[in-house]
């Protein structure tokens, strides 16, 4: 049966942290074997690229490079040595550019973090406002119209939306740069095109939650006690509906990170997403591995945070007394 021993809050935190470590380890393992067990020779590819297609290198050069990157060692040994290096903070050297991976990441990470952060900063308040507005009067014409907006937003492909935004606001109106772009103006269009599909999912879940909570018995009772609807809606309905919203926002961070790959490519922004795309093309395993582990780290950390946050928001999650059936 699903009866578990009693545990304290500290044990709960420890257990969650252990989950966090397991997720990171699993991501590393899967990425490593996917990258290094693939057919194809990254070193040959690298030399070919570097020599600009002029026939690659001699077999001696290839062998020397292989030895330098440790590619001749058996796979399990490389797996362990790479893991050891990662744990000591050594992310390795890019096959492609020959530069240390941290250096490559540091060059582009701020751009991506700004993009992802801006997208979240747009998406979360936007979806909150839209959902609260939609659900305020269930059954009203506004509700019937607005409730369909998220589905519409979600149905639009991200890249198409991005192209549309560029067409209208860059080429048409000339308000924002269409590609690259530094600072805030360059950030607006990519962030919006990344934020819209994300806020569609968030809004849909929140509207559903708000509508469900409104049907709960305690809401009718609060109204029957004479409390004004605005008070009931904001202090009780919205607060209860926010719980699943917090969980989903945590999960959304993953979607935003994945979305940067497309967005950065469409808008020709330097960033982790584009670095990842180009590194996958050239089988630049150390870079791909580092980005994968980094993304997993961010994703797992955010979800660890929401996991630890939820018991603070919901008293029912604080006492874990499974079983004890009456």
């Amino acid at each position: 049966m699903n009866t578990r021993p009693p545990r304290s809050a500290a044990a709960h935190v420890l257990r969650r942290c252990a989950h966090f470590a397991v997720v990171l380890f699993a991501v590393y393992t899967v990425s490593f074997f996917l990258l290094y067990a693939l057919p194809g020779d990254p070193v040959a590819l690298m030399l070919e690229r570097r020599s600009a297609g002029a026939g690659g290198g001699t077999p001696e050069q290839l062998a020397a490079l292989r030895a330098r990157y440790g590619l001749d060692d058996p796979l399990p040994q490389r797996y362990l040595s790479t893991l050891g290096a990662l744990l000591t903070g050594d992310l390795g050297t890019s096959f492609q550019s020959g530069r240390p991976v941290p250096e490559l990441l540091a060059a582009v990470a701020p751009g991506t973090l700004a993009l992802a952060g801006a997208a979240l900063v747009l998406a979360v308040p936007f979806s909150l406002a839209l959902a609260l507005l939609t659900s305020h009067r269930p059954g009203s014409p506004a509700h019937r119209i607005l409730v369909n907006v998220p589905a519409l937003l979600a149905a639009v492909p991200a890249f198409w939306l991005a192209l549309l935004l560029v067409q209208v606001f860059s080429f048409g109106l000339g308000w924002f740069p269409s590609a690259g772009g530094e600072g805030l103006p360059g950030l607006v269009l990519p962030a919006v095109s990344l934020a819209l599909p994300v806020s569609a999912a968030l809004t849909a879940v929140l509207v559903r939650g708000l509508d469900d909570v409104q049907r709960a018995g305690f809401v009718a009772l609060l109204r029957a006690r004479g409390l004004p609807w605005r008070r009931v809606y904001l202090a009780h309905v919205a607060r209860n509906a926010l719980l699943p919203f917090v969980t989903l926002t945590g999960l959304t961070v993953g979607g935003v990170l994945a979305g940067t790959v497309i967005t950065e490519t469409v808008f020709a922004r330097a960033g982790l997403g584009r670095l990842l795309a180009s590194s996958v093309e050239t089988q630049d395993a150390p870079v791909v591995l580092a980005i994968a582990v980094l993304a997993a780290l961010v994703f797992a950390a955010v979800n660890l945070l929401t996991d630890l946050l939820l018991p603070l928001l919901d008293p029912r999650l604080r006492h874990r007394t499974d079983g004890a059936r009456a």
Partner: peptide, 28 residues
């Protein structure tokens, strides 16, 4: 509502906001 007529509901287990302490319900 409230001042003239008070309502006692059917299902006590679902009749209070689960996120609010007992004192919070009264204070409100």
């Amino acid at each position: 509502r409230g001042r003239s007529v008070g309502l006692v509901p059917q299902d006590p287990a679902r009749a209070l906001d689960p996120l609010v302490r007992i004192e919070g319900h009264f204070a409100e």
